[in-house]
Design a protein around this nucleic acid. Structure first.
Length: 596
RNA sequence: GGGGUCGUAGUUCAGCCCGGUUAGAACGCCGGCCUGUCACGUCGGAAGUCGUGGGUUCAAAUCCCAUCGGCCCCGCCA
């Protein structure tokens, strides 16, 4: 029975070369290869096999005159069999060269063949680029990963990690691993919980980030820390969000924001150099949060194109346009955007934008086209000469342009028009994939007010230090306090963010208090941090970058799943293994858990 | 929690609006022939829970309802 399986644990010979690396200079060499059958062409007398390994494909020729045995066996071989071949590298006759293949000037005349494993016919072709539904790809992830595209992506990802480690090592940073079993935290995202068998009724949480641990490493004197760290958040998934993801986590003792930004600019430059061979422009552009919101309606503007927003509220000071009049009288603001004449939208496209804006933000989007003689569009008749002149002045409108504007509460109006701006950028292909617009957004507000929870919440996290000049406002006007924080943005995608931290236990307790966490409770939940800060904690600060997102941009893909070896679906399921899975009742019992 | 979209052979899709042949095509797969192919060619063949359940109807891949799953988005993600 067992003999029939024909299991051979060891290869018949060692490989001398990768298939994809053979070149004319190898002609005459006897080589040993192994790999997967990419394609087989059986001519009866002659058999050709394209053999594939991670470096590429080379053609193997089975000629009965060289080896009748190998030729006979080759006829029975099928796609994706894993085989070992010995043979001689020869130059191809000029008329049989395949210019489509890097190895196309040579081929291997087979002298011996061993089938190390057979294969079922694969559910989708491995060798060619064909669109396969993601469901099938994820179910057979090991086959999807065998395809050149994902091989390339994961090797680029490896290059990013390698560049990161080399860079930080050269700058004297120490990589420290922090625990995966950690403490549940009250603020932030939902935690993944892990029950403790030894402590029934108590739970670990998987870390949302090593934030507090890296701060404590500064207290501990490591001075410069980095880690390529796995993080976990139990929130709903998106194309660019997975429940577990990887951060490049960094913390320094006594840095200025400028120093941290310089270190990160250097890192990104190194990553782009070592992966794509591209040099990027430094220093990056910088905007304050207020500027970003005012000019682009978002805290992560895509700077590859203009179409900037302008506040045109003053143009409507005496308007007879009733809707706007009412909004402005209630303290609302009007934001406008100029779409230059070279970009024309048809009525249907404009209607679509209006509908989108209404459904997402509950605000009306108005537009008017500046035709030769008159303004056109449904709201043109509501715009008097004064408003028109003011809009033209504020936005430099010219004949043929389209004016788009939104009125409403300032933050909503800006965000809504910011979305319109992005839609226009995509519609008119203003986002070139070749341009890399890096940007720092600085001075975020420290707090925002949560309508839902009826209290202040941290914009970043509660360990972020306020700007020293805003400290006096903490009590009187906390919403006006700005943070010593910085986000790095590339082409409208947030790559990461960080801040200078609070290293003073009293100020930290004060911040908790403002967030609705009384001293006693703060000590219960964050006592270890407060205590650590009390033992000579140095000033410190840092940043964390999303490694997966950087990999996405470097690989030029739209989905995080294309740069993660074993990703999960939108319902957080691994289609290959079936995780998460049900467990045996005895496991629950041992953990003192009961399902509700 | 909500909105959109898709689900038909191993794969990619057509058929669905407007219900009515034996549900098709390409690639893949199986078998024959073939000594210069490389998406080999050629001859022949097999292959379907039309996601699942219910309903309407003389009759459902097709219409209706529910449900499951993939993807995109909103909420959520300090």
């Amino acid at each position: 029975m067992t003999e029939q399986i024909g299991f051979q644990p060891l290869p018949p010979w060692q490989r001398t070369d990768y298939c994809g690396t053979l070149r004319p200079s190898d002609a005459g060499r006897r080589v040993a290869l192994w790999g997967w059958v990419n394609a087989r062409r059986d001519h009866g007398g002659l058999v050709f096999i394209d053999l594939r390994d991670r470096e590429g494909v080379v053609q193997i020729v089975f000629n009965p005159e060289r080896s009748a045995k190998a030729h006979e066996l080759a006829r029975s071989v099928r796609t994706e069999y894993f085989i070992a071949v010995k043979g001689e590298v020869v130059l191809r006759a000029p008329n049989t060269v395949n210019p489509a293949l890097p190895t196309g000037e040579v081929e291997v005349m087979a002298e011996a063949l061993e089938v190390l494993n057979t294969s079922l016919p694969p559910p989708f072709p491995i060798g060619e680029e064909q669109q396969i539904t993601e469901e099938v790809r994820l179910r057979y992830r090991y086959l999807d990963l065998r395809r050149p595209r994902l091989q390339r992506n994961l090797r680029l990802r490896h290059a990013i990690a390698r560049a990161t480690r080399a860079y930080f090592d050269e700058l004297g940073f120490v990589e420290v691993e922090t625990p995966i079993l950690w403490r549940p935290t009250p603020e932030g995202a939902r935690d993944y919980l892990v029950p403790s068998r030894v402590n029934p009724g108590r739970f670990y949480a998987l870390p949302q980030s090593p934030q507090l641990l890296k701060q404590i490493l500064m207290v501990a004197g490591f001075d410069r820390y980095y880690q390529i760290a796995k993080c976990f958040r139990d929130e709903d998934l998106r194309a660019n969000r997975q429940p577990e993801f990887t951060q490049i986590d960094v913390e320094m003792t006594c840095p200025t924001p400028e120093q941290i930004m310089a270190v990160i600019e250097g890192l990104l430059a190194r990553i782009y150099r070592d992966t794509l061979g591209i040099s990027i422009k430094q220093p990056f552009e910088r905007l304050t949060y207020d500027e970003a919101m005012e000019r682009f309606g978002t805290d992560k503007p895509d700077m590859r194109f203009g179409l900037e927003l302008r506040n045109i509220t003053s143009a409507f000071a005496g308007t007879e346009f009733n809707v706007i009049k009412r909004i402005v009288s209630e303290g609302g603001q009007v934001y406008g955007l100029r779409l230059p004449a070279q970009y024309q939208l048809v009525r249907r496209e404009l209607d679509e934008l209006v509908t989108q804006t209404q459904s997402r933000f509950g605000l009306g989007l108005s537009w008017a086209k500046l035709a030769e003689r008159d303004w056109q569009g449904p709201v043109a008749k509501h715009l008097g000469a004064y408003e028109r002149a003011k809009c033209v002045e504020a936005l430099d409108l010219e004949a043929g342009d389209t004016l788009l504007f939104v009125a409403g509460p300032q933050s909503v109006a800006r965000s809504a028009l910011g979305e319109v701006r992005l839609s226009l950028g995509h519609k008119f292909s203003l986002c070139s994939n070749d341009s890399l617009c890096f940007l720092w957004v600085v001075d975020f507000p420290l707090f925002e007010y949560s309508e839902e929870e009826k209290r202040l919440v941290s914009v970043n996290h509660p360990f972020t230090a306020p700007k020293p000049e805003d400290l006096p406002l903490l009590e009187s006007d906390p919403l006006a306090v700005r943070a010593l924080s910085y986000d790095v943005v590339l082409n409208g995608e947030e790559l990461g963010g960080g801040s200078i931290r609070i290293h003073n236990s009293e100020l930290q307790l004060k911040i908790f208090e403002l967030l609705g966490l009384p001293r006693e409770e703060a000590l219960k939940k964050f006592g270890f941090l407060i205590e650590a800060l009390s033992y000579g904690a140095p000033p410190h600060g840092g940043i964390a970058l999303g490694l997966d997102r950087i990999a996405m941009l470097i690989c030029g893909t739209e989905s995080l799943r294309d740069v993660i070896a074993f990703p999960k679906t939108q319902k957080a399921v691994d289609l290959m293994s079936g995780a998460p899975a049900e467990v045996d009742p005895s496991q629950l019992k041992e953990l003192a858990l009961k399902l509700v």
